[in-house]
Simulated scan of single mutants.
Amino acid sequence: MVAASPLDPDVVLWSAPVDERGDRPLLVLLHGYGSNEEDLFGLVPHLPAAYVAVAVRAPLAPRFPMPGYSWFTIDGVESRDPAEVTASAHAVWEWIDKVRGDAASVGLLGFSQGGVIALQMMRMRPRDAAFAVNLAGYAFPEPAAGDAELAEVRPPVFWGRGARDEVISARFVDHTAEWLPGHVDLSGRVYPNLAHSVSAEELNDVRVFLEKQLATPKG
Rank of each mutant, 00 (worst) to 15 (best):
V85P: 05
D81A: 00
S79P: 11
A83L: 11
Q113S: 05
L119M: 14
D81R: 04
G137E: 15
V77T: 06
G76H: 05
N134W: 15
A89D: 07
G107R: 14
V116R: 01
A118D: 14
P62S: 12
W71D: 10
S112N: 13
I117M: 10
W93I: 03
T86P: 00
S70V: 09
E78V: 09
T73R: 07
F64A: 13
Q113Y: 01
H90G: 03
Y69L: 05
S79I: 15
E78L: 11
W71Y: 11
E94M: 04
V106D: 09
M66W: 01
M122Y: 05
A130M: 08
L108I: 09
Y138L: 14
Y69T: 03
W93V: 03
K98A: 03
F64Q: 08
E142G: 00
V106Y: 06
F140V: 07
I96Q: 05
A136G: 13
Q113I: 09
R125N: 05
A103K: 02
A83P: 04
V77F: 12
R63C: 11
V116A: 05
A83W: 04
F111W: 07
I96D: 01
L108G: 05
D102A: 02
A89K: 09
G115R: 14
F140R: 02
A132Y: 07
P126Q: 13
E78Y: 02
T73H: 04
P67L: 13
S88T: 07
F72A: 12
A136W: 11
R123S: 14
Q113L: 04
G137T: 10
T86S: 05
D128F: 09
F131Q: 10
E84P: 08
G68S: 00
A145M: 08
V92W: 01
D97G: 00
P62H: 10
G146L: 08
S88R: 08
P143S: 00
A104T: 14
L109V: 02
G146R: 04
G107S: 15
H90A: 04
M66I: 11
Q113G: 08
V85I: 14
G114T: 01
T86G: 10
V106F: 06
I96R: 06
R123L: 15
T86Q: 06
Q113C: 08
F72P: 07
D75F: 00
G107P: 13
A83Y: 06
A144S: 09
V92T: 10
Y69Q: 03
L109C: 01
R123I: 13
A145Y: 03
T86A: 11
